[in-house]
């Protein structure tokens, strides 16, 4: 079995006898990604309606459904309708601190049982029980860190109160966001990624989600919901969530 030193020594030996195929440099990274990210967000906040329109167009193209509401109070009724259409009685949700609002009351009014993810990590037995809950609940309600218009993608970071499988195991995923999540391009996302990874506290996983889970592995017939959600919905809230 090789060691790190031996591996690197062989690579260096090979590189020493190989001139470059052509002169090349990697991409120029922002020196202060956080400041650049803030600037981008500020500029974007002025043209969010156009960005939302583009997001909607691309999101629908990949099979997502966008709902638009004025305030966060209207979110539970949209979720309630989606749940009733699917005979679902239980809803998983991120912790209110991660979601930016507390949907429990409103969901109760819709006659739904709200299973809220804890912010603090419980012991191993409770974690196993929670996993079973997540695996058997038909609908998952999450927030969105970035809604990428160019591709209709929702980007979700894992972390306390925002377990990654809430957007994966339920057959229906509903995600809520406001104008502050909208960005236009992958290039802008790159800056955000640079800023996030400079931040030691960020979670273990970042997921880009572009529509429902899909496959074309049998005779190239497009089929949805092979492992992840079959239905993906986004609820855009006009009044910012954290005002």
């Amino acid at each position: 079995m090789s060691t790190r030193a031996e591996f690197l020594r062989r690579i260096r030996a090979e590189l020493a006898r190989t001139p470059a195929l052509f002169p090349a440099t990697p991409s120029l990274r922002p020196a202060h990604p956080r400041e650049v990210a803030d600037t981008i967000r500020r500029e974007l906040s002025e043209r969010w309606p156009a960005t939302l329109q583009r997001f909607q167009q691309e999101f629908e193209r990949v099979g997502g459904v966008l709902h638009r509401v004025a305030t966060v109070q209207e979110v539970p009724s949209v979720v309630g309708r989606l749940a009733r259409e699917r005979d679902a009685r239980d809803v998983l949700t991120w912790h209110p601190s991660a979601l930016g609002f507390d949907p429990a009351r409103g969901l109760a009014d819709e006659k739904l049982t709200c299973r809220t993810m804890p912010e603090a990590v419980p012991d191993a037995a409770a974690r196993r029980a929670l996993r079973d809950t997540i695996a058997t609940t038909p609908l998952g309600l999450t927030g969105v860190d970035v809604a990428l218009a160019e591709t209709g993608t929702m980007i979700l970071r894992s972390g306390p109160g925002r377990p990654r499988s809430t957007s994966l195991l339920p057959a229906t995923h509903v995600a809520v966001f406001d104008r502050t999540a909208l960005v236009e391009s992958l290039a802008q996302v790159a800056v955000l990624l640079e800023a996030w990874h400079a931040d030691e506290a960020s979670g273990a996983v970042i997921n880009f989600i572009t529509g429902p889970s899909r496959t074309a592995d049998i005779e190239l017939t497009l089929t949805r919901g092979v492992h992840g959600p079959k239905d993906v919905h986004a609820i855009f809230v006009e009044r910012p969530l954290r005002e």
Binding site: A204, V205, N207
Partner: peptide
């Protein structure tokens, strides 16, 4: 334009996270 899922994995579960 993008595949449905792009997953960035930064090591094992963090102590403050439920899963992984």
């Amino acid at each position: 334009k993008l595949s449905v899922y792009t997953t960035l994995v930064r090591g094992p579960r963090k102590p403050e996270e439920l899963e992984g």
